[in-house]
Design a binder for these strands. Sequence first.
DNA 1: AGATAATCGAGACGGTACGTCCCGTCTTGCT
DNA 2: AGCAAGACGGGACGTACCGTCTCGATTATCT
Lengths: 209, 209, 209, 209
Amino acid sequence: MVNKRQPAGAAVLQPDVTASISRAFFAEWARVGFGTLSIESVARRARVGKAAVYRRWPSKVAMASELLHAIGTGMAQVPDTGSLEGDIGAFLDGAHALLRRPLVRRILPDLHAEMGRSAPLAKAIRTNLQRDRRAMGEALLRRAIARGELRASLDLELALDLVAALLYWRMIVTGLPTSGTYLGDLKKLTLASLKQMGGHPRGQERAPP
Amino acid sequence: MVNKRQPAGAAVLQPDVTASISRAFFAEWARVGFGTLSIESVARRARVGKAAVYRRWPSKVAMASELLHAIGTGMAQVPDTGSLEGDIGAFLDGAHALLRRPLVRRILPDLHAEMGRSAPLAKAIRTNLQRDRRAMGEALLRRAIARGELRASLDLELALDLVAALLYWRMIVTGLPTSGTYLGDLKKLTLASLKQMGGHPRGQERAPP
Amino acid sequence: MVNKRQPAGAAVLQPDVTASISRAFFAEWARVGFGTLSIESVARRARVGKAAVYRRWPSKVAMASELLHAIGTGMAQVPDTGSLEGDIGAFLDGAHALLRRPLVRRILPDLHAEMGRSAPLAKAIRTNLQRDRRAMGEALLRRAIARGELRASLDLELALDLVAALLYWRMIVTGLPTSGTYLGDLKKLTLASLKQMGGHPRGQERAPP
Amino acid sequence: MVNKRQPAGAAVLQPDVTASISRAFFAEWARVGFGTLSIESVARRARVGKAAVYRRWPSKVAMASELLHAIGTGMAQVPDTGSLEGDIGAFLDGAHALLRRPLVRRILPDLHAEMGRSAPLAKAIRTNLQRDRRAMGEALLRRAIARGELRASLDLELALDLVAALLYWRMIVTGLPTSGTYLGDLKKLTLASLKQMGGHPRGQERAPP
DNA sequence: AGATAATCGAGACGGTACGTCCCGTCTTGCT
DNA sequence: AGCAAGACGGGACGTACCGTCTCGATTATCT
């Protein structure tokens, strides 16, 4: 048995207090935005003293970095359905489901805006979340190339942007609705565009019938 | 004869004060974000009394709406170069130049985040700026259809998203650099993708050589 | 003949505007006190533009000095009834009537307070008003000495203070009421005290019966 | 056993902050007058947040009332030297010393002026300070009557006014200096005047030799 | 009669203070 | 030691006025 006594009267950060703060943090973020977000309001919502928050994280940015990291680790799931069409479909379905959650819709653009302002936050997010997601996307594309579904000459950078950009733009930036067929059409467009990438552009220049 | 007399001794808001406030407003926005932006700091930076600001706009949101509108009106320029390739190139060049400006890079994602929170701001922006830009984009595509460069069956919604989304994603969201060739490759990709839209997807399914 | 032409089309400060401002000035002074008194509120009450006030006086203190001087000149009336008792009675009756006026009750202590703060105001008041009143009091006492009603050896300074101090203290400082008999008793006390001044104090030391 | 527990973690107003505010309050009062006195300047001078002031007193008047009361309680000292001459001398010496203090010279007339304007302040001061001082004065006079030094028939009201009025008038209202002999002469005058009060005025009417 | 210039009201200007609210830090006393 | 409660210095809120300054419109004099 481990004799790991705390130095007499030593208390330990209580996990349920931490969890309560974490929930309150994201709820408040979604409600008022990162800039306006105050530790005090988080503590109030978590029914916790302010000191309990500051004992855990030194700042708002540190709090966001750590909590987002904890969430993000389980998020970059690689599907590998066996075909490019299946992989793209699964990826877009997942992203669609994620971006439909109100909390995410509110927090994501705010996070990107704050990253433009706070270098530490930007670094933390880019190295912890975006890198993983980008690596996952690259793997997906390389598998398709290996299967012969895509040309080896395609521009990976551009292809990755293509896969991610449209859904984000539609759902987060424009705020327009994604009608029943939109997601399906988007899948088709993405697939078709990927397939022609790396080819000779002249081939497509004939006027469509 | 115009009977446009002021009511005797009426003082008038001075244009140079308005201009100074406007400059300070955007500078502060870029610096701290919309949520944290305080009227007091704007007035201080503009070397102006707080009352001079409140005399002009009742709130931060009203201020943003009007000032962005004033800026945005001159922004939705339709190029009409005579060919789809030229139009797309001109549009992306313009957007690229715009998104390279530091002030815009800071403010744009913040604006989108705030629009998700403030319905009045969202409405003002969407009806004043996005509607115009979207209309301009539609006109561009319809001209290309009329010229026979694009199929009449293409999904306009999706096509518009395609044209706008990638550059925004790359420059604003990921924050990654747009290398010398990136913009050119993006133009080619956009053009090729547009041209195949509305066609039978099966035709492109043959494995690339 | 004096060739004192105005430079063609010269306008002149309108007397009724000046009078209206003067009335409003004292009314406002009585209402809020000198420190809180603002030119703006005076102009508002006088239904006059702010500039009309500033065109006449450069400051609040200058305004008070000039207006009080204009009022005070007609105030230091020497009665000369032929006897000390008559003179003292007349003086105290006059002072009593003056200090009963609400405007005076309000303004006088405020003026004294402000004089302790503003050297220019203090100088203006002391040389314009207090000097005259003090001279008048001295003349009154000297006449009584000449008549043999008072000793020549009495201390003029102290005697003057005695005549003025009690009524001011009672009416202005303590704010207690001056009952019907108070003023009469005060006259008797003042008279008796003056008469014994300058004499040998031992004479009065016998115990009262 | 005293059950005076605070409700768990209750914070308590810090006495040194209160003292700092009090000092700053009187200093500012003496500097600019009660009307012009701003809470903000008091807080600034005390190097304290505005909230720390408002946490203690709801208004300027309440602040003045309480602080003056706190000061005034230790002020109404009854000397009781055993003789009227000694008592009067001690009282006037004390008053002289008090009225010589610059802070008092500035604040006192301002306080009286403000009392004419603010009923709550007037009530607070009259019941807390003036009542005590007046009671102390009455006791002094009654002792003298008991000793046979003064007539029982003298008018207490008038006598009290006499004792207090002259020094206040001289030092505060006229602002004239109190030369070396002035205070001594004043004592003699006061004493002599008191002794003759309540007697037959005719007895003193014979012309002084 | 017409020209002219100072005075008039109105009000925008840069400021300061209001009294409230909330921030992040720090202290206190209970568990 | 961890916890809640809350006082602390500080800063922004949006309003109300401050004294200064700038307007057209008015008005009284002088040509």
